[in-house]
Design a protein around this nucleic acid. Structure first.
Lengths: 217, 217
DNA sequence: ATTAATTTTTAGACTACCCTAAAAGTAGTG
DNA sequence: CACTACTTTTAGGGTAGTCTAAAAATTAAT
């Protein structure tokens, strides 16, 4: 059984490594958890002994399989509770973080799974962040968004992530619908926007946000 | 800000003193919390310094006003969460205790009050125990049931909670009616039953259920 | 490549909470 | 009142987690 403190360390390491690889350094973790570097070193030794992190003196740490599972389960709980607070208890999306920060440590798989069901197996929290399912898979797992592809690639639209009518009508105006073939001509690095060719005939420029919300194969 | 451990001590003392006055002895608390007497002594000194308990060496402890408020707020949270688990997440009434034991320590008055509203301001948990309101009043406040009194106390019957004819005829058979004087001789801790003296003459044994359904003054 | 700046680790100490073993206090019994 | 049984407290120590200050290692810079 892990302590609240240990769980918070794992969560911090997970999120640092999500953003940029090799970034979970002693100092970075300390800053994230508002503690001191020496405390982090201490804890890394303990977590390493429990096979939750891979730790080597003076090097950035990474999570083991076991550590990753714990971290994901905490993120899952955090996001489910946030959604519960907003959707069922009518909190505003900016008021829920601190409460979810506490609720995420409640230990009961059954509780988490039933909460998940109660909320209708959602895949996004109130901030639009993905909620991993009970197997620890993030919703877009297996599904590729257009934004993940490189230029000169061709693909077929198989779904949308954002279901808002404004997004859908925007797609319609571009003649993009299910099964539309898209070729990426240029993928601009500076803003992640793209020049694409729709169905081999119509050229268009789409923003990063649009590319991130189109599932393709 | 109180620690989880401190909160659990306060809750234990509250419940011991509810059952029988002067019963929150070092040993009793230790047993209730599955810890050792020496640890309890330790904690009593700390809680006393924080003005949460009244502690004098070698004597049973009681809660201060502040201590009582904390204890009641924890009980409130525990019972609201239990009801949530049963009513909304469809847990069985016997599966919820351990989870509620964790949830009761979540610190957010707003959360508690919204959960209360979400559940429709209930006054009983799934086990039939009363849920204090946000002011810390138990639903039957203003009205005291016989079960809330300690042994050696004397009181007068002023009403019944259960109005069923079977209960009323049972009372009649015991010669208990409005304005009857009852003296509590013994309040058994193990099953909350009582030995009482009716109108100073007739001795009787009554169960917890009966005591809980008699309003007295 | 040696020095300087920065990061990380170690050493030693503190608090909260727990324990065991022994001492001290309280109560019951003849 | 003394003796025994029991309860409670003290004394001393352990672990988890924190800190500061100093030492060691790494990285950057001249």
């Amino acid at each position: 059984m892990l302590s609240l403190t240990e769980e918070n360390y794992l969560k911090a390491i997970f999120s640092l490594n999500r953003e940029v690889a090799e970034s979970a350094t002693t100092n970075a973790i300390a800053e994230k958890l508002d503690t001191k570097a020496s405390s982090v070193t201490d804890m890394m030794k303990r977590l390493s002994k429990k096979d939750l992190v891979n730790y080597q003196k003076y090097q950035a740490v990474s999570l083991t399989k076991k550590g990753k599972e714990v971290a994901i389960s905490i993120i899952r709980k955090h996001r489910l509770w946030e959604l519960f607070l907003v959707e069922k208890l009518h909190f505003k999306w900016d008021e829920v973080h601190d409460i979810a920060e506490q609720l995420e440590h409640i230990k009961s798989t059954q509780l988490t799974d039933r909460l998940d069901a109660f909320l209708g197996f959602p895949d996004q929290d109130p901030h639009g962040d993905p909620i991993p399912n009970k197997e620890g898979q993030f919703p877009e797992d297996g599904r590729t968004t257009l934004s993940e592809l490189n230029q000169k690639t061709s693909c077929k639209v198989v779904g949308v992530k954002d279901h808002s009518s404004s997004f859908l009508s925007y797609l319609e105006s571009m003649d993009i619908e299910l099964n539309t073939i898209i070729q990426i001509k240029t993928h601009h690095a500076f803003d992640s926007s793209m020049e694409i060719l729709i169905e081999g005939k119509k050229e268009a420029h789409i923003s990063k946000e649009v590319a991130q919300n189109l599932y393709v194969e």
